[in-house]
Design a protein around this nucleic acid. Sequence first.
DNA 1: TCGCTACTTTACGTAAACGTAAACCTCGCC
DNA 2: GGCGAGGTTTACGTTTACGTAAAGTAGCGA
Lengths: 127, 127
Amino acid sequence: MSETYGIAELAKEFGVTTRTVRFYEDKGLISPTREGQRRIYSPRDRVRLRLIMRGKRLGLSLDEIAELIDLYDADPSEVTQLKQFVDVIRERKSVLESQKKDIEDSLSEMNRLEKQCVQLLSQKQNK
Amino acid sequence: MSETYGIAELAKEFGVTTRTVRFYEDKGLISPTREGQRRIYSPRDRVRLRLIMRGKRLGLSLDEIAELIDLYDADPSEVTQLKQFVDVIRERKSVLESQKKDIEDSLSEMNRLEKQCVQLLSQKQNK
DNA sequence: TCGCTACTTTACGTAAACGTAAACCTCGCC
DNA sequence: GGCGAGGTTTACGTTTACGTAAAGTAGCGA
């Protein structure tokens, strides 16, 4: 029998409120079962929450995140579907690549700034 | 004498509406000069717009972007300020690093999915 | 002088992603 | 059997980042 989680437990683990977790359910991002009226979360729900959080860190909207999660779940049988599927994946990849470039540019600027500061500091300290 | 730009011109270049450009001015992110009542944008404003767009692609809020732009502009004279400055930069760097990791994870998942699809496709095609 | 185009201010509207408050279960414990 | 902790639904409130409409202005060509 596999592990289950309560709402407070998951909320705490991911650093959000229970309201947020319920909100994601409203949006169809997770679908816990019920035990009476209480929500019971499966490991699968937990994985989804992890995906949601990563999406948010990358600046995606909940709608975009939903589409991505569907990507993981989908199981395209038709060849046509499969081809569309590949297109979506490549689309997504190119977005990620350009985002990666943005980050690398930002990082090298930050490194430059840091270097300047450290140098300035050593100058001021040594006089 | 250096180049200037009109609002429609810049809006078009960055793929946003003029409303958006004015909104950023409202938020203090850019400050064009005026020629009569019309806004005149400098190359500096243009650079800032570029920074704003990159920030948005990385999922930052306009407030966060404002802070980052201040980072570039700031010219800390005091040693104490300089040290704080370095702290802020390192903070920012660590956020970027973890974002980079998220992206790389996403990318490898996409690659895995793509591979699966392509393989499935070739199976179906060859039967 | 008219009319067009591009720009302006003012202001109300909206979608997303929750926050917050109210009022109601229900389970375990003293 | 009361009650406190933790969960639930319902619903209105809030912030961010603009959209959109109205009404005015300024320059420019016919």
